[in-house]
Amino acid sequence: MQALYSQLLIGLINGSFYALLSLGLSLIFGLLNIVNFAHGAFFMLGAFAAPLLLEHLGIGYWGSLLIVPPVLALGGMVLQRIVLRPLQELDHLYGLLATFGFALIVQGLMQIGFGSAGLPYAIPSALQGGQNLGFMLLPNYRGFVILVSLAVCASVYLLVERTRLGALLRAATENAERLSSFGINVPRLVTLSYGLGVGLAALAGLLAAPMLQVRPLMGADLMIVVFAVVVIGGMGSILGSIVTGYSLGVIEGLTRYFYPEASNTILFVLMALVLAVRPNGLFGRREA
């Protein structure tokens, strides 16, 4: 039983990252109509920021949590404004290739700068240790990651579904040109949502820094799985990304307990099945 619970916990942790990352991908896909291949690079940069800020500026975990997501979101907005916006009139393939190229460049530079092994980063002192839940030991930091990810996912969901900004985002996803004819500056909205998506990736990276090895390819490796999650959930649905993110993390964890041999492939098998039955994913828009 112990082992089952701990696999469930790992599943929830992984699911937290899947949800945060696929949520950002969905936001970006909704407004830019491109799959953001730069997502893994921003995740990795978010993770690297933690040890680098500590070493060079003496900024600890909590300071980083405050600074890193907004700063990288801003960087993402600059990238969108300078590189992606001029490509928007062309085939979406160009935008997709640009994000892919950006990811390769960033990964390459980080490998030159830090090697492939990467940097260690300690769990913040306030979150060291764990709670004995009776049936299992819950490390504090893992509980923290799950809570933060749930809170952030819920906030983004409410932002999109309940606020004026969210209404604008939904309208732009539905018909951007139409929205602009009602007096809304859609390009600015597009830049903003790219920033929001990147900010979520950076936050996920920062949350991962004390748990995973901080290394240049950490984002690329994780994104392979996240893209499977996104394909299963369907692009562009906010609730869909969140629900599929967590459930697939848990399904993966359960597989690791019941049938460990399949744990690395289960998501891809599910992806193939879903693609065969519902090509737009479980929550996907029909025409996407």
Binding site: R164, A167, R170, A171, E174, R178, S181, F182, G183
Partner: peptide, 15 residues
């Protein structure tokens, strides 16, 4: 030009 993913109030208050 009514947006399907928006409520009546959201459509009304969009511009």
């Amino acid at each position: 030009g009514i947006f399907a993913s928006l409520t009546v109030a959201e459509n009304l208050r969009l511009p």
